[in-house]
Design a binder for these strands. Structure first.
Lengths: 217, 217
DNA sequence: AGGTGTGAACACTTTCACAGCA
DNA sequence: TGCTGTGAAAGTGTTCACACCT
């Protein structure tokens, strides 16, 4: 609800939540911003600023109630409900994601799996059958899908996404290494593993610590 | 080599590179910063600023030579060589990554696969055999591994990483949803798919476009 | 004219530092 | 006293606008 919330803040909230849930399992009680920051690898001021964008959840002199704060953060992130998800692309990555327990644990339920490959169509995945991507619209409508996970080749991703958006999907988790174009009000988040490896390659090549011989300017 | 290069710049360079390579396949020639920006979903000024951090690669009035610029960006990112990578965690995600052609195409070669599960140890993966993670150090040294991909459960990730760093690994691509602590000069990049879904959940819950009824402040 | 390279202006994010409540 | 919540300061990243080269 606040006017401006940065992406980094949201990422950190997600991180805080994971930590808070671990703390809750270990007994809970209270945390201070200092403790939470240490666990999340950030600063206490950052933790307080992030939280204060959404309300006053702590008690001065005492810190935050672990269980209660976890509830609040879940609520902020919109995790107080289940999300119906379709998976397009029944390849290796799609299959790994389908089995990924953390998605379900967080309320993201894969309710349809689709592919173009005739060899895959009809395969049983858990309680689902892989469907022909030709009937994407029908599947999305039938299952009331709101979020799409895209693990098809880059060349096919845009067409699939256009059809899904036309069918009412407003959230996309994109694993295809391509820049998706969508209308306003549709949210795309990219997971680009090659990009991360390339960033690592850059770091290893250029960000050598001072003591290894980076004296030249 | 420049003093300060932001992470966002590196991500964009990686993105530019993918676009430039596609353009090179389509015949090459020249690109202007306006064209490259349009393809990458950013601004022309941003493209020029990003590139100018590393040198002057364009010709005023003409733009950039596609093939040459691609070479330069590859060089900047440290992609002018091969990287020897070990994969720890031979589960679903590990297996998907092992098959992921884009890694190899970019020069990231998985030269060892390790797991704790006795049922998996000894399995043949391509030309490799899955090894016992107990002999991690031996495998890393034998293969001259520089980069580790971690797809083990969160609880085991830190111990593995500590051992790998002690064996000389300086780059880590971490799929475990946990905050890894490492010494200076070791670079960790996280791929956190649950976090991306949670960010999507936040967007869908809170960033509703104006016309759908977000008038309240 | 056309399009790069870049200092300067602007916008956004993080950190500081402290008032104020338990 | 202890720790939150938050304006103000500092720091970073992005956009602007134009000099300059071809």
């Amino acid at each position: 609800m606040p006017a401006k919330v940065s992406d980094s803040t949201i990422r950190r909230l997600s991180h805080y939540l994971r930590i808070l849930e671990a703390m809750a399992r270990d007994g809970g009680g209270t945390v201070s911003s200092v403790q939470l920051a240490a666990a999340a690898g950030t600063t206490a001021a950052q933790v307080r600023k992030d939280l204060s964008l959404f309300g006053s959840f702590g008690k001065r002199g005492h810190g935050y109630q672990v269980a209660e704060l976890a509830d609040r953060v879940r609520e902020i992130l919109g995790l107080g409900r289940d999300w119906r998800v379709a998976l397009v692309g029944a390849g290796r990555i799609g299959s790994a994601l389908f089995e990924y327990a953390d998605f379900r644990r967080r309320g993201f339920h894969i309710v349809a799996v689709l592919d173009v490959d005739p060899a895959k169509i009809g395969e049983r995945w858990g309680t689902l059958a892989v469907e022909d991507v030709a009937s994407l619209e029908a599947a999305l409508e039938r299952e009331g899908v709101e979020v799409l996970i895209v693990t098809v080749p880059a060349t096919e991703a845009q067409a699939i996404v256009d059809r899904a958006v036309a069918s009412g999907v407003r959230g996309i988790l994109n694993f295809a290494p391509t820049q998706l174009r969508t209308e306003d009000g549709v949210f795309v988040h990219d997971v680009n593993m090659v990009m991360e490896l390339e960033a690592l390659s850059f770091d290893l090549t250029n960000r050598i610590p001072a003591d290894v011989g980076d004296t030249a300017d």
